[in-house]
Write a protein that binds this DNA or RNA. Structure first.
Lengths: 186, 205
DNA sequence: GCTTTAAAAAGTAATCT
DNA sequence: AGATTACTTTTCAAAGC
């Protein structure tokens, strides 16, 4: 009855951007409180924002990766905070650098338990990966939209690899109709 | 020209030596596991196919050989868990699992998920349990799996719980620790699967 | 390939009380 | 026997080894 699309929830958004300027991460790490910088371990400086919650990886090249946001809106808000923090350190940052969403992770609920063994055979062993000894989820790669879905016995699923929120909706629609055609839903 | 010819010989010799090493490793591990010759043959066919398809580049020969053996055991219907396989290999469990999934995908092996019932005879004989217990365990697995209880669960833990439950029902009780040891899973996993299974079977004891 | 960051799903596991 | 913490899978960018 209820549309599984309604249960879709964005769990994580990864985006990249850049201030067209080289940075001295050592001094940024000194002046920016809460910054984690360990070049021996990883070349990026980690800066966490509280509201909205996210983690930004800032690189020497001036390129920045933002992870952990719950929406594309939060990504922009988080990065706005990061840009302002850098400006406080007398670093010139353009008003609105281009932000590119690289990956969106979504969760959803089909509302029925799933027989993953039957689904593995039904979808075709060549199209899926299901190794319950290694991981409880069945991995299903879709061509259109180009995303990867993880299906669980509870009927919950994770959609990842999409660039737009609509990718997850289209993926859920396709999965639901495939499973219905196979008579494996409910 | 002479150099090219020598290089070819060198490459050919190296390739031949690597193949021989891989096949002898498969033989060694298969012996240690006590699997029949047919499994070693299937494993060597899988290894040669992986070699032909150039899937070994960037991976260790041992890793691919071990994964080929793991896949062969499953294909032949006498699966060994990754834990058991890793005990006779010098490659760690995580790497075997990762390499297996890669060659399985690339070679299109179309591996079906392991049926927990395949572990019942071996685990039961190691525990010296009767034929009656085996039959009961298979019945529990069959019935509960049809109800969808198997989805996402590890086949070894599932089989272990069914054997534990069957041993109780047949008055040949084995402790959770004894079953956990032969199946190489934890007692916690057996308890969790056991509770679900007896509930689904409508058994109260 | 690896390193780090985030997040969900569910199973398994190690450790502590 | 719980509870807690942590690790397994997928995705993606960044710079450097």
């Amino acid at each position: 009855m209820s549309d599984p699309k309604e249960t879709i929830n964005i769990e994580n958004v990864v985006a990249s951007t850049g201030i067209g300027q080289e940075l001295d991460l050592q001094s940024v790490a000194m002046d920016l409180e809460g910054a984690d910088y360990d070049p021996e371990q990883f070349p990026g400086l980690v800066y966490r924002t509280q509201e909205p919650k996210s983690a930004a990886l800032i690189f020497r090249s001036g390129k920045i990766v933002c992870t952990g946001a719950k929406s594309t809106d939060d990504v922009h808000q988080s990065l706005r905070i990061v840009f302002d923090k850098l400006r406080d350190l007398e670093i010139n940052v353009n008003e609105d650098p281009e932000i590119v969403v690289q990956n969106i992770v979504t969760s959803a609920d089909l509302g029925h338990n799933l027989n993953l063994n039957a689904i593995a055979i039904g979808l075709g062993l060549e199209n899926i990966e299901y190794e319950p000894e290694q991981f409880p989820g069945l991995v299903y790669r879709l061509d259109d939209p180009e995303v990867v879905a993880l299906l669980f016995g509870s009927g919950k699923l994770v959609i990842t690899g999409g660039k737009k929120p609509e990718d997850a909706e289209h993926a859920v629609d396709k999965i639901v109709s495939r499973l219905e055609d196979l008579g494996l839903l409910e | 020209r002479l150099r090219k010819w020598q290089e070819r010989i060198r490459t050919k010799d190296a390739g031949e030596r690597n193949l021989q090493f891989a096949l002898s490793e498969i033989d060694r591990m298969a012996s240690a596991l006590g699997v029949p010759r047919s499994v070693r043959e299937v494993a060597s066919v899988i290894y040669r196919r992986a070699l032909k398809e150039d899937l070994i580049r960037g991976r260790s020969i041992e890793g691919v050989a071990t994964s080929a053996l793991y896949a062969a055991c499953r294909k032949e219907g006498i699966p060994r868990s990754l834990e058991e396989i890793s005990e006779v290999s010098r490659v760690e469990r995580k790497e075997i699992g990762r390499t297996y999934r890669y060659i399985s995908q690339e070679l299109g092996l179309e591996m079906k998920p392991v049926d927990p019932k395949k572990y019942v005879p071996r685990f039961c004989s190691e525990l010296e349990l009767s034929e009656e217990v085996q039959t009961k365990a298979n019945e529990i697995i069959e019935t509960t799996a049809e109800e969808g209880l198997l989805s996402g669960k590890s086949p070894t833990g599932y089989a272990a719980a069914a054997i534990y439950a069957a041993s109780l029902l047949c008055n040949e009780k084995k402790t959770q620790r004894e079953v956990a040891d032969v199946a190489q899973v934890t007692e916690v996993t057996i308890r969790n699967r056991y509770q679900e299974q007896i509930e689904a079977m409508g058994i109260h004891s």
